[in-house]
Amino acid sequence: MNKSLFSALKVERNVMFIILSLIIIVAAFNIISGLTILVKNKTRDIGILKSIGVSNKSIKKIFFLVGFFIGTLATLFGVVVGTLFSIYVESIRQFISNIFGISLFPEDIYILDTLPAEININSIIIISLCSIFATILVSIYPASKASSLNTVKTLKYE
């Protein structure tokens, strides 16, 4: 009985990992599209910066830092919200159960009477670093695109 339960939990855990990984990929594409739109909106400004002597490397650095800043801020926000969620997960479960009148995490199926949550500092650090690394990776493309824009064309951009 317990063997099949743990096996099911393991499958659930793997599926959750895939779902959360997909969420991170979607978030990464959001950063790419957000930065691409920013580069488009700031095309004229890029031209002005280049006309006053700002190098392509500096332009790249500006947009890369914007992406990095957004990603880092989002990671910190995610860590805070995630940790709070883990601490108050049982209260949140009870609140949702009461509001919608449904039984989340039923005791007769899961054996446990409260939703267990464990805060693992190492996991938080690894996930945060992975998230920041993903941000760094996806910021490179829009930043490179911004720096490679033709100055003459950017100055004519309306």
Partner: peptide, 25 residues
């Protein structure tokens, strides 16, 4: 030599365009 040209532009050349010369932010 883009890097050197950027430096020459920054130090030796001042440019004024017809309009929208300034950074809006």
């Amino acid at each position: 030599n883009k890097v050197e040209n950027d430096l020459i532009r920054a130090k030796k050349i001042g440019i004024i365009y017809q309009d929208k010369n300034l950074l809006s932010d």
